[in-house]
Nucleic acid binder design. Structure first.
Length: 508
RNA sequence: GGGCCCGUAGCCUAGCCAGGACCAAGGCGCCGGCCUUCGGAGCCGGAGAUCCCGGGUUCAAAUCCCGGCGGGCCCGCCA
């Protein structure tokens, strides 16, 4: 980054000095345009040969123009992210701009720290852990809002993983496909693919490439430690299968990790290492980039959703009662909790609404249009209302009782089933699809199918109690049939909401 | 330059792997109804699609094959 700025400043100063009105990009554009005209003229007049000679220079200028554009856009991104940083975190910005005066020196220092860290320098290790703990706390806080927690964390710097990483390097070095280039240890996977079907099939038409395992200064790379960590997960934890939930950008890297594992003797493990690929989340008309300070955080998403929930609630109350209940009658505490839960459900639904292999694009200014989560929760609340009246107790607090009561009901109506209404039949068909849906989700790693199924179930449910009376049905057999259908849907929906991590709500 | 993924109404998606009841389904938005006692964050109806383009295979293609175009990602000492 630093040389780019320097280059820009130099050219900019030069242009100013010579009082050029145009910037470098415009000048380059002009040159290439002129050259294009010249090409046409020359070839039309039969001077193709002359053009060929000129062409070489022309290409060089085009290349220069391309580079300039790259530099310029990078620079403007950089300055804008600097602005963002200085406005959001002025303290951090002040410290950084005071402390980092020479970027090269800063980078060198980082490298030095890395080396000491790698060699087990306890003092520097402590600093590293302190910093990562702080970020980790942030992660825990944000994800905690969504009900996500972690059983445990592994430190890459742990003695165990460090020694495994050293072992990986040793093992790789023994391989016939390994060699040193300028001090760095490199594993030639292209060569290995020619002799191992596993690797050639893993990469398909793609070139496996060369995999750097150790830097020339002797330190390991993230990827090396990833191999070591995989060994750790299988051997230390005794994992039967390992799912790495990692973004699509690292598809190739994950394959290289697999191939390396395979080559150093962990064949079985390599096959059981599964990369769960997911795509990025984009905002409508804006590319997210934390490096450039352009982002929309999960915390913001939850907060914004909460506002949408409050707005919807107020509107519904107004329509229902023509006015909002007086403040003293409202249990603000409880309402707030409900809005939080709805916001969590909505946020999770948004993230689950698309196949993980596709890019999710949404417009944060129109969150109310992505209300799938709250609509499912609402349906769940509604069918609980029906069951509560049917059985006279709280369904979610008496799951076993409701199951046995359902069986009793079923015994009463068995062999007496009457013709079913189309909507009832539709609901039964949907319920039947549940097991195969779960299997599909698991087999193809498509959690979005869970949400899709839940949505379908809710659509049919809404249709059912909108078109047919459940508790109001006079015929006892039909009535019981419908109660059982609602009950089954309730059990499935509860199951689904738990799998998807939606909070369970009894009443709104 | 090479590889992988994606391209379906104004918008977001399902269907594609295992071709057939798809003259393509759902949601958002739009238009018109229903303030029907189990909760109206609902229900019913309507308008809106060259399934990116062009070939091929087949009795049959959104789906399979080939070639384009457009977008994203990745291609050796970052994580």
């Amino acid at each position: 980054m630093y040389p780019l700025i320097e280059l820009y400043e130099i050219t900019d100063n030069l242009l100013k000095k010579f009082k050029y009105k145009h910037n470098l990009g415009e000048i380059l554009s002009e040159i290439t345009d002129t050259l294009e005209k010249i090409e046409k003229e020359l070839t039309s007049k039969g001077y193709g040969k002359v053009w060929k000679e000129l062409k070489e220079n022309y290409d060089r200028i085009s290349e220069l123009k391309r580079k300039f554009n790259e530099v310029f856009s990078e620079l403007s991104n950089y300055t804008s992210s600097e602005d963002v940083l200085s406005s959001i975190y002025p303290e951090i910005y002040a410290v950084l701009s005071r402390e980092i005066t020479d970027p090269d020196f800063a980078e060198e220092t980082i490298r030095e720290y890395m080396k000491r860290y790698e060699n087990g320098d306890e003092e520097i290790g402590k600093v590293f852990r302190e910093v990562s703990s702080m970020t980790l706390e942030g992660f825990k806080e944000t994800l905690g809002k969504l009900g996500i927690w972690f059983d445990s964390f592994d430190w890459e710097s742990s003695r165990k993983i460090r020694s495994l990483a050293r072992k990986v390097i040793e093992e790789v070095e023994k391989l016939p496909y390994a060699r040193r280039e300028e001090g760095a240890l490199l594993l030639d996977l292209d060569k290995a693919a020619m002799e191992h079907k596993f690797i050639s099939e893993l990469f398909g038409k793609d070139k496996p490439g060369k995999f750097i395992v150790q830097r020339s200064d002797g330190t390991s790379l993230y990827t090396t430690r990833d191999v070591a960590y995989s060994v750790y997960k299988f051997r230390e934890y005794g994992a039967k299968r390992v799912y790495n939930v990692i973004a699509v950008e690292q598809t190739r890297e994950q394959k290289q990790v697999k191939a390396t594992l395979y080559l150093i003797g962990y064949k079985d493990e390599a096959e059981k290492l599964i990369h769960f690929v997911y795509e990025m989340v984009n905002l409508k008309g804006m590319r997210m980039s934390s490096r450039r300070g352009q982002y929309y955080s999960l915390d913001e998403l939850i907060e914004d959703y909460k506002k949408v929930m409050v707005r919807t609630y107020v509107e519904n109350q107004k329509r229902k009662y023509k006015s909002i209940e007086s403040p003293e009658k409202l249990d603000i505490e409880k309402l707030n909790e409900t809005f939080n839960k709805l916001a969590v459900a909505s946020s999770r639904a948004l993230l689950l609404s698309i196949d993980p292999s596709k890019v999710l694009t949404f417009d944060p200014r129109r969150l109310e249009e992505y209300g799938l989560g709250s609509w499912i929760i609402y349906t769940f609340v509604r069918i609980q209302g029906i069951l509560r009246k049917a059985f006279n107790y709280e369904p979610l607090d008496n799951l076993e009782k409701i199951n046995s009561d359902a069986l009793k009901l079923y015994e009463k109506i068995t062999n007496q089933l009457k013709d079913l209404d189309p909507v009832e039949r539709e609901l039964i068909e949907t319920i039947q699809e549940y097991p195969s849906t779960l299997l599909e989700v698991y087999e193809y790693l498509k959690p979005n199918k869970l949400l899709e199924y839940a949505n379908n179930l809710c659509i049919v449910l809404n249709k059912l109690y909108e078109t047919l009376p459940v508790l109001g049905e006079k015929d006892p057999i039909r009535r019981n049939t419908r109660i059982i259908l609602v009950l089954l849907s309730f059990i499935i929906l509860k199951d689904l909401l738990e799998i998807m991590g939606f909070p369970l709500i009894k009443k709104i």
